[in-house]
């Protein structure tokens, strides 16, 4: 992203932005980039793009980069960001809309294959873990 100049181009990138806003029910332009969401995110250490950057890139309609990010699979919907955002933006909802878009764009790019997990580990895991992971990471 270092060599990219970010500019709002009305009418060009806003289809994706509108889609994210519709699925998530959030007004993306309300974000003023304070960074509080990222500061408190317990998963930030394992992300490639921080939550505040996700919101910024969604404002700009950067579909390709967002859907290819590791972050959308790392966020666990803990809602810490949601409860602390001074602009009441539900960042977790924004990220979920990206995850859903990636899972439903026809490629069925699942991020979890249950059969790759050994039967011993599977037997050990609580049902809520399995069901939650499948709901979040598979199409």
């Amino acid at each position: 992203m270092n060599d990219t100049t970010l500019r709002f181009l009305p009418g060009k990138n806003n289809t994706f932005t509108a889609k994210v806003e519709k699925i998530s029910g959030q007004k993306l332009l309300a974000c003023y980039q304070c960074g509080k969401c990222s500061a408190g995110c317990p998963m930030a250490a394992y992300m490639d793009i921080l939550p505040n950057q996700i919101v910024r890139m969604a404002q700009l309609g950067m579909e390709k980069q967002l859907l290819a990010s590791r972050t959308i699979w790392t966020c666990v919907s803990c809602l810490t960001c949601n409860s602390r955002c001074p602009k009441n933006i539900k960042i977790a909802e924004v990220i979920e809309s990206l995850r859903e878009t990636a899972l439903r764009n026809g490629q069925r790019d699942d991020r979890l294959n249950i059969w790759e997990i050994s039967p011993e580990v599977r037997a050990d895991l609580p049902p809520i873990a399995m069901i939650a992971a499948m709901r979040k990471l598979t199409s």
Partner: peptide, 20 residues
């Protein structure tokens, strides 16, 4: 006491859970 434990990453990313 209200920090996330990593939740369902228990399934595919146990290394994150260990760190949490």
């Amino acid at each position: 006491k209200t920090e996330c434990c990593g939740a369902y990453h228990a399934v595919g990313k146990p290394e994150i859970i260990a760190d949490r």
